[in-house]
Design a binder for these strands. Structure first.
Lengths: 345, 345
DNA sequence: GAGTAGCACTCTCCAACCGAGAGTGCTAAC
DNA sequence: GTTAGCACTCTCGGTTGGAGAGTGCTACTC
């Protein structure tokens, strides 16, 4: 890859920035007029020709302005990656919102999704913190009516699942509480395998509940990620890319289906660590439907204990300058929150 | 309103059905050819002119086919209201899905939203069952780490809320359990007012938790509806109405915002009882943004104990024949499920 | 009088066309 | 290395001119 001169570099970044704002191909004249450059349009044209030659820009048709290629965006992103910071005031507003809201994972997730969508004007995705090494922490059994029992199962790492069981026969709350207490002593801190290896209990009720607990933990452990939260689908509806092209419309369909989303997060994330941040441009990573889109994603949480992913999807010309620092900042915040809440167990 | 002859009636219904499928203005020729009517196009034209006169049809322009007016749709819906039934096989599939899924309100809601969206090809909205007369049922306190405590609060009616509290100082699980047991005895079945009227507890921990419980119940009671679930936003993206008109695009924005949705459900539902089913055509009820849309909504649940709403939003020419019976059937199913789970308390 | 054939009329849709304008690449001069 | 100038290309917006669809009306038939 040939080197870029300093001038080419500024020109390229300027042009991409302008295109991201205007969504219009950028010509030499526009560049000179809007950014009072001390050069003539002809010189700019020469440079743009060079940049086109190198693969950073392209022309939609012979006589239109230039538009960034994927390569161009990649360069643009790499340039701002380490430098972009969220204004302190925005940071404050965001963190304020988190610490104001009730301390509840579900709320945090919705809030994160909403903030990301709002700041980036794209579609946000957040997965709840999740661990593949699920360990038992606590169970509660609450009788509701007759044979119906509400079971609340808490895992080490903070995941909570509730389920209504129907028992073979009515059981008093007292007996349920005793069962819960026994099981809590017995199972504290055990992983799936250890629980499965336990000898059968004499007490039939104990054994029934135990089986259910086991099934529930297994179910949780099998999932590749926690519950998925998303927001801002409608943000993107007003973008010209999506309004026109049938192509891009399909990308949205993808986001309507939870299962596809889960897949996407699972596929894109394994090669990334907590703290890292990835920018996938133009459907990098083999997503045909997302060829016109970009994603900014990051992992958050406490490695080995509970981690989740969060990110933003938008048109390829999304505002990286805004999105990247936001994703990074929110990921950091969530990591802290998760850490405060569940670490040390 | 002048009477419709039998022939006008069939013609009108036929035309509307055709338009709903094709999304194209329907002309006299098309009508004759597709439905082998024993009349000439000229006769049809005369009848269509009459129907237009009466306000059931209109012409987008002088020489296009006819399109139903709101009035026309209203007539169409009133004709099928009592007659449309879901095929038994579809009923079976749907109810199967519900009884297969884990008995968990959240799951039911997501499932209902998904089924509605899928069957109707529109956007679905489901609100969780909710009561305005919240009564205490049960609390559990689970220590997680240090001063962090997970509180699970169950209300009569089945609503469950969980929250993480931060206490002033670390408290053992044992002490937490005792507190929970005491409070459960004390508060069982009490409504907000009764709890608020209770004398202060000597035990500081008891009192703290009590205050938090009270705040939580109040918060729940104040909401006009339970959590809102929605699905199928992307279904509607492929409809021509939404692809083109900027107008209709705004309707979708409305559905992106939870608060607006909540408002909408609250505003439209009070005049409807469980079991009843409303069809709002063309934004009836004062929703400017929904002028091009229709909604089919119903209440479900156990009156006085816990009720919720569910419905479908789609273009005015949505498939009522499919949507109406589906909404009705799912509402019935959810009512049964809610009833099975929480009644008798 | 209900139904129908025929016809003139209206209006949209589509394709072709054209000119204005934007932007380019290249060349020659500074 | 930079710039002025120019010929060239291509899109975009507006216009034009059928072709086709659908209508309303009239006059005719049973």
């Amino acid at each position: 890859m040939p080197e870029l001169t300093e001038r080419q570099k500024t020109l390229l970044l300027l042009l991409i920035r302008d295109y991201i704002e205007s969504a219009q191909p950028v010509g030499s004249k526009r560049l000179v007029e809007h950014y009072h450059i001390n050069l003539s349009t002809a010189t700019i044209r020469n440079e743009m020709a060079a940049l086109t030659e190198m693969g950073y820009l392209r022309q939609p048709h012979t006589s239109a302005g230039r538009v960034p290629t994927e390569e161009g965006y990649r360069y643009f992103v790499s340039q701002m990656m380490n430098q972009a910071e969220l204004p302190v005031s925005v940071q404050a507003t965001i963190s304020h919102q988190f610490y104001q809201s009730p301390a509840d994972i579900e709320q945090w997730m919705t809030l994160a999704a909403s903030i990301l969508a709002h700041q980036s004007q794209g579609v946000s995705v957040v997965t709840a913190p999740h661990t593949d090494k699920a360990k038992y922490k606590h169970v509660e059994l609450i009788s509701t009516q007759g044979r119906q029992v509400l079971m609340v199962l808490v895992l080490v790492g903070g995941e909570v699942s509730q389920q209504i069981l129907t028992l073979a026969e009515p059981v008093s709350q007292e007996r349920l509480s005793q069962t819960a207490t026994r099981l809590n002593k017995l199972l504290a801190g055990l992983a799936v395998d250890a629980i499965a290896a336990l000898p059968a209990r004499q007490d039939a009720l104990d054994q029934d509940i135990l089986t259910l607990i086991l099934r529930d933990i297994r179910r949780t452990a099998e999932q590749v990620s926690g519950e998925i939260y998303t927001d801002g689908l409608t943000n993107v509806l007003s973008e010209p890319e999506f309004a026109e092209s049938h192509e891009a419309r399909r990308a949205l369909k993808l986001f309507g289906e939870r299962s596809a989303l889960q897949d996407l997060v699972a596929r894109t994330m394994p090669n990334s660590n907590v703290g890292g941040l990835q920018v996938l441009i133009g459907g990098e990573g083999g997503w045909e439907e997302l060829r016109q889109c970009s994603m900014v994603i990051a992992r958050y949480g406490v490695p080995g204990l509970a981690t989740g992913a969060l990110g933003v999807l938008g048109p390829m010309r999304m505002s990286y300058a805004r999105t990247i620092p936001t994703v990074r900042y929110v990921a950091g915040l969530l990591s802290d929150l998760v850490n405060d809440t569940i670490s040390g167990e």
